[in-house]
Amino acid sequence: MIEELEKVYKYKYMLVSKEVYSYSGKLFNDTVYTHEKNKLIPLKKDKPTSIYGGYSSEKSAYMVIIKILKKNKSNIYKVVGIPEIYSEKLEKLKLDDTKTYVEKFREIINKQLNKSEINNYSIVLDKVMYNQLIFENGEWMTLGSSKERHNAKQLVLENKIIAILDEESRRAISRKDGISSELDMVYEQLINAIRKDFPLYKKYIETLENHKDEFRQLPINSKYDSKGKKSGDGKFDIINDIITGLHANGTRKDIKILGLSEFGRFKSVITFSENAKLIYQSPTGLFERRVKLKDLSK
């Protein structure tokens, strides 16, 4: 039994499956911004943003994927959000008036496109759920929103690293001779893992490499003042923050000592190539169907 468990621990790919869903709830992001911020949504019709400020963005009920035709270039596939404020009306129109539904649907999409895109796109998928699994160029990701990707690949640590980081033995191991250099080795191993298995995180590699000396100079454990507030970072906590930012979800960490802000967050306009694959999984993740975007747009 122990040998079988050790064999499983050494697997380099851990099966991860998540429930896909559409959003239903608040219409806007909670934060209200001052009038100094551009492109705000009014709090109410009679409250202009120039005086009262407003919301920065609407909450999306679900996403769509459109194909944008590019002259003399490869077509791109773009993710666009469908705001919750329109979702109920769209569902009703879809049943009662198909023509009006299509017109309204495109009108909502057009608001999120630039002039060159509005007349050059077709709808590939009219409903893409949150947590939809997608694979492209070695990157495993899920959709956290129309502008946010989440890592979908689980980090697998070697047994010797797990032993070093184990919470139960942490106090005892921190007194062991050489533990500081062992933590330096763990830091190096994490960089190597990102370089080899996490292409989604490639933008962080240079920063992590450039801060090796800062990490080596840290104490083993974080320091706290008399009130229990952290006053200085330690190697154990920094490594734990890096591992947390590598989780297969939307967790992000600010690691200031390493010059990292929101480590693990991937927020930008989301586009794919025609070879990106949408992966539809069973609840267990044991069964799946993979479809390339180019095959959906034929």
Rank of each mutant, 00 (worst) to 15 (best):
Tyr280Phe: 12
Asp241Phe: 02
Leu208Ser: 06
Lys160Phe: 08
Ala152Pro: 03
Glu136Tyr: 01
Lys104Val: 07
Asn29Cys: 13
Glu3Arg: 09
Ala163Ile: 03
Ile161Lys: 01
Glu188Met: 09
Gly81Cys: 05
Ile108Arg: 05
Pro48Ala: 08
Tyr224Asp: 09
Leu15Ser: 11
Asn131Val: 02
Ile76Thr: 13
Ala276Glu: 04
Met63Thr: 00
Glu84Ser: 13
Lys147Tyr: 07
Arg149Lys: 13
Gln189Met: 15
Lys78Asn: 03
Tyr77Glu: 04
Asn29Ile: 08
Gln217Met: 12
Ala172Ile: 00
Thr34Gln: 15
Leu296Ala: 07
Leu183Met: 08
Asn131Glu: 14
Lys18Gly: 08
Gly53Ser: 05
His150Ser: 11
Tyr121Lys: 05
Lys39Trp: 01
Thr100Ile: 07
Arg170Trp: 00
Asn151Met: 05
Ala276Arg: 01
Asp213Leu: 12
Ile109Met: 05
Gln132Arg: 03
Tyr11Met: 14
Ile123Trp: 00
Gly234Cys: 05
Ala248Val: 01
Ile220Gly: 06
Tyr52Glu: 09
Val102Phe: 06
Tyr101Cys: 13
Tyr52Asp: 10
Ile2Thr: 09
Ser174Leu: 00
Lys44Tyr: 09
Tyr204Ile: 02
Lys59Arg: 14
Asp225Arg: 05
Pro283Trp: 01
Ile173Phe: 01
Pro219Tyr: 00
Ile108Gly: 11
Lys70Trp: 00
Leu293Thr: 02
Ala193Thr: 01
Met63Gly: 04
Asn110Leu: 08
Phe266Gly: 08
Lys45Arg: 09
Met141Asn: 02
Asp166Cys: 14
Arg252Ala: 14
Asn240Met: 11
Thr100Tyr: 03
Pro283Lys: 06
Tyr201Lys: 09
Lys256Gly: 15
Ile65His: 01
Ile179Ser: 08
Tyr121Gly: 11
Asp254Trp: 00
